Simulated scan of single mutants.
Amino acid sequence: MTVEFRSALRADAREIARLFQISSEGAANYIWSQLAQPGQDLLDVGASRFAREDVDFSWQNCLIAEAQGNVIGMMHSYVIRHDPLAPPVTDPVLAPYAKMEIPDTLYISSLALHEGWRNQGLGKQFLAYAYDRANQLGLNGLSLIDYAVNTGARRFYERHGFRIVDTCQITPHPMIRVAGEAYLMYRP
């Protein structure tokens, strides 16, 4: 079956949010729960966030993989810049991650494929796109955060030139599905 890669459309926002939920191990639901109105579905919150324009978490920063007209995967990435005026992150669950950034890199916040589409070389194609985009933007490479318990993903990223450059402890929370360490990975 032929897989096509394309830039995301605003109409993809809900599927982007669904895939972001898969890759975030509960972090997306935690963040969206902080923004939700009482009784609001968390996927609706995520979809509305990705439907925005000209912000980091936007459909505009997503690449879609599609087969037979169905979204089968996506990569969300945006440029990390040092902002000395940014307020410190005080949320105890999110604060450890806020310290794990490499300025002037293209940060891959999510690379997710639906079941049945993994281990077919699509992740490699997403990374090639990201690397080309980082080069076009004059950035110093790619960065991402991965969880230590996700050994398959870590091996995948290491095979494609990433190395671990920092670690932090994951703050336990009932919505977060992983424990232990998180890794900041970098590919020049």
Rank of each mutant, 00 (worst) to 15 (best):
Q68F: 02
L42P: 03
T105Y: 05
F50T: 00
A98D: 13
Q34M: 12
H76Y: 05
I108R: 01
P38G: 04
F20G: 06
R52V: 03
E53V: 12
Q21I: 03
C62M: 02
M100L: 12
Q68C: 04
L111S: 01
S77E: 08
H114C: 06
M1G: 12
W59E: 04
E115T: 10
L43F: 07
E101S: 11
Q34T: 15
L85C: 04
A17N: 07
R6C: 09
M1N: 11
Q37F: 06
P96R: 06
A112L: 00
V45Q: 14
Q60C: 02
V3E: 08
A95W: 09
A27F: 14
Q34R: 15
P84L: 07
L85W: 05
I31C: 10
A28K: 02
L63F: 02
E101W: 01
Y107R: 02
E66W: 02
A86F: 01
A112R: 02
N61G: 00
F50D: 00
I31K: 11
Q60D: 07
D54S: 12
V89C: 10
R6I: 09
Y107P: 09
V71L: 02
N119I: 00
L43W: 02
G26A: 04
P103H: 03
K99E: 15
A95Y: 11
I102E: 08
E101I: 07
I80A: 14
G46C: 09
Q21H: 07
S7T: 13
S110W: 00
R81W: 07
G116D: 11
S24P: 05
S77K: 10
G116P: 06
R81L: 15
V89W: 08
A36T: 07
G39Q: 03
A8D: 06
S58E: 09
T2Y: 01
E4L: 09
M1I: 07
A17R: 07
A65Y: 06
N70Q: 15
G69A: 07
M75E: 11
I64H: 10
